[in-house]
């Protein structure tokens, strides 16, 4: 089968490793070969955490520059930073809620204007889906469910060969009874938000 390549970028603590786990589990439920890799040594120290996930027959576990079919970013400036992973046919999904790095807070570097971020990504890729995932996570009743909101949007695009039911099943088994309900709601809200984008 054709290989689909997904990059997820987030700031340490935003829960992208759980999102990757859920997707991996969902792929297993769907009988789709899946491989992934992540760099997570400094995650708890506020650095960038990047996961690469490949669905299909590829043997590699990493994605070269320009070869991601879809990029999901948990933070707008990180979407721009990871744009080297995309090509003109890539789809980009980003949370718009900003988390300026500490360097910008102390005046070393300027945090980019969110509108410029969106314009740049739109101009260079096939499609941008951008919304405030933190607001939707709050609406779902769990501010930490940003990862599930973005998973919902990711599955809505149809770029990955994974049905929504299998992702929901993975959310239920991987995130425990206590959070499953709000996580599933967050997934649905993300799914609908992506459906509204042209």
């Amino acid at each position: 089968m054709d290989t689909k390549r997904l990059i997820i970028v987030a700031v340490g603590g935003q829960g992208n490793l759980l999102a990757s786990k859920v997707l991996g589990e969902a792929a297993l439920f769907s009988d789709i070969p899946v491989r992934m890799s992540e760099i997570h040594g400094m995650a708890q120290r506020g650095g960038v955490v990047e996961s690469a996930i490949l669905f299909g027959d590829a043997k590699s576990t990493i994605i070269s520059d320009g070869e991601a079919d879809i990029l999901v970013s948990f933070e707008p400036s990180e979407a721009l930073r990871a744009l080297n992973k995309c090509n003109v046919n890539s789809v980009v999904i980003t949370n718009l809620y900003p988390l300026p790095p500490f360097t910008a807070v102390i005046g070393k570097g300027v945090y980019p204007d969110p509108n410029i971020v969106q314009d740049l990504i739109r101009a260079k890729t096939a499609k941008l889906i951008a919304f405030d995932a933190v607001a939707l996570a709050k609406e779902a009743g769990n501010v930490l469910a940003v990862n599930m909101v973005l998973l919902g949007a990711l599955i809505q695009t149809g770029v990955l060969p994974i049905p929504a039911e299998n992702v929901k099943k993975a959310i239920t088994t991987k995130t425990g009874k206590f959070f499953a309900e709000s996580n599933l709601k967050a997934f649905e809200l993300g799914f609908s938000a992506a459906a509204k984008e042209k």
Partner: peptide, 22 residues
């Protein structure tokens, strides 16, 4: 022929996000 990469020359310089003491 490698994949067509987008031209990233007009991306503004982004503030670094190095790991930091907690």
């Amino acid at each position: 022929k490698p994949a067509a990469l987008p031209d990233l020359s007009d991306i503004p310089e982004l503030p670094q996000r190095p790991p930091n003491l907690c």
